[in-house]
């Protein structure tokens, strides 16, 4: 997904670190097919989500040369077009296709600008602005992550029923997390966590976005 930008920017002190919020077995075919040149890590327990406040994919954090957060966790340039696709014909209105392209391009241009200009990029937040955009966890969210971790262990050690009770608790305690919800959800015919329950949950968002707007000039 990020191969092009990595290839273009890797000589400018820029690296992509991709983290799969997933099991290695499920994610491996994608990595084997795409063979990204940048590091691809497996985070079956969603540790990085817990540390940075990530709640969906794709999200990204910009981290500068000194290991400081330049942009906290946010939607990495996706647009909600999939919600406007006709669920029978699969057809998406042209304006949404255009908005998907525009959102992605706007975001990619910003990443490129940061890769080239570093701290001088206009897309880097100052400390106050960065702090204001952090997603510090609530007590419930912290608890959700240990339930999720425990559930994952129980699932791997052959105790799916007990795992499910902890997954359900994690979902209840952290309702904003799509990563926890979808990781533990049923799959549709194509093997994706996009069954009827998923669509009901997406529809319940109403006017809220599945991919929240990226706080960036020119972003739809």
């Amino acid at each position: 997904m990020w191969q092009q930008i990595y290839d273009a920017m890797k000589d400018k002190g820029f690296v992509v670190v991709a983290v799969a919020m997933d099991t290695a077995e499920a994610a491996r075919p994608y990595v084997d097919a795409a063979k990204p040149a940048y590091p691809c890590l497996v985070d079956r327990d969603h540790r990085v989500a817990a540390l940075y406040g990530m709640v969906n994919v794709p999200e990204a954090v910009w981290i500068d040369e000194n290991g400081r957060i330049a942009r906290p966790a946010e939607n990495a340039g996706s647009w909600d077009g999939f919600r406007r696709r006709d669920r029978t014909t699969g057809i998406m209105p042209k304006e949404d296709v255009d908005l998907i392209v525009r959102a992605k391009r706007t975001y990619m241009d910003a990443v490129r600008d940061w890769a080239i200009n570093g701290a001088a990029s206009r897309h880097v937040f100052d400390e106050e602005a960065a702090r204001a955009r952090l997603r510090p966890p609530s007590e419930d969210v912290a608890l959700a992550h240990v339930h999720f971790r425990l559930g994952g262990h129980l699932l791997r050690t052959g105790r799916p029923d007990e795992a499910l009770t902890h997954f359900e608790e994690a979902r209840r305690l952290h309702p904003d997390s799509w990563t926890i919800w979808r990781q533990t959800a049923g799959r549709n015919d194509q093997g994706f966590a996009a069954n009827a329950d998923f669509w009901a949950r997406v529809d319940a968002l109403g006017e809220s976005r599945y991919y929240p707007r990226v706080d960036m000039e020119g972003m739809p």
Binding site: V17, V19, A76, A185
Partner: peptide
Amino acid sequence: FLSSWASW
């Protein structure tokens, strides 16, 4: 550029 993704 620390980014998340998933197969699901």
